Simulated assay, not measured.
Amino acid sequence: MQKVSLRKVKTPISYMQETTEEVLHFSLQGLLPIGHTLALNTTLGTLSHLVIKQDRPHMLMEQQFTTSEICVLMPLLESYPYYCPYEVLLASFTSGRVTDTTIARCRTRLQEAQEAGVWDQEMRPVRNVLSRTRLKTRAFGIEISSILETGYILMYMANHRLMEE
């Protein structure tokens, strides 16, 4: 007879809600103009582009992200201006919580996949979500760029025209 667990299974978004901040702010110096900020609401799944005008915050734009998209966007934002390694993205994508243990587990998983010749299949779900996330971040003038055999990094889109209202 199989024993049934009564404890609640946590989804990735519920892990993120354990953070003390409901809205996380990212200035992304060098990527956004001075005085501009991105605000990620982890409860609603929205990313807002804010600027202070006449001592008041103004929202220039906002995008809605799915739970999976937030799980890959969050480590990219937190890693900026540096790259985000594959194992960190995979850890966040699969568990919603990035700890040294989950990163080590994912690093081992990717090394084993590389040795077995199935690395692309292992990372395909993450790359699919990154593709959808990339489309949404482009509206902010932010490109998610791949660094061969390393990870991903946030970059400024040179041909993007910033919305100013």
Rank of each mutant, 00 (worst) to 15 (best):
A113W: 14
G141P: 05
R105W: 11
T101G: 01
F93R: 09
F140T: 09
R97L: 00
K136N: 06
V126C: 06
L110S: 13
Q111Y: 12
S92N: 00
T137H: 12
I142N: 03
F93N: 06
R105H: 15
N128C: 04
E122V: 03
V98Q: 12
Q121L: 09
F93L: 01
L89H: 01
L110M: 15
A91L: 08
E115V: 04
M123T: 15
E112F: 07
T94Y: 14
A116Y: 11
L130C: 04
C106M: 14
L90G: 06
Q121I: 00
R138F: 00
A113Q: 14
G141Q: 03
N128S: 03
R138A: 05
R105A: 12
G141M: 09
R127L: 07
R105Y: 11
F93D: 01
A116R: 04
T137S: 11
R109L: 12
Q114I: 00
R97F: 02
D120W: 02
F140Q: 09
L135S: 10
V98L: 10
G96I: 05
D120M: 08
A104S: 14
T108K: 15
Q121S: 05
D100W: 03
V126D: 06
E122L: 04
G117M: 03
W119F: 15
Q114P: 00
V118K: 15
G96V: 06
T99Q: 06
A139S: 07
S131R: 10
A116N: 08
T94D: 15
S95C: 12
T94S: 14
L110H: 12
V129M: 04
A113M: 10
Q121H: 03
V88P: 08
A104K: 15
F93C: 01
M123Q: 02
E112I: 15
T108R: 15
R134Y: 08
G96Q: 12
T133I: 00
T102C: 10
Q111S: 01
R127V: 09
L90H: 13
A113H: 15
R109I: 02
T101I: 02
N128E: 01
S131M: 09
I103H: 11
S95R: 03
T108C: 07
R138T: 11
I103P: 15
Q121M: 11
T108G: 09
V126Q: 06
D100S: 08
G117Y: 01
V129H: 00
A139T: 13
V88Q: 10
T133G: 03
A116V: 06
R132Q: 13
R124L: 12
T137L: 13
S131Y: 09
V118W: 04
V118E: 02
R134S: 11
T133P: 10
A113T: 12
P125C: 02
L135E: 08
T137W: 10
Q114N: 01
V98I: 14
G141K: 05
L90Y: 15
I142M: 03
D120L: 04
L89G: 07
E112V: 14
V129L: 02
A116T: 10
R134W: 02
C106V: 04
V98G: 12
I142H: 03
R138N: 04
R134T: 09
D120H: 02
E115C: 05
T101F: 04
P125I: 05
R138Y: 03
S131Q: 10
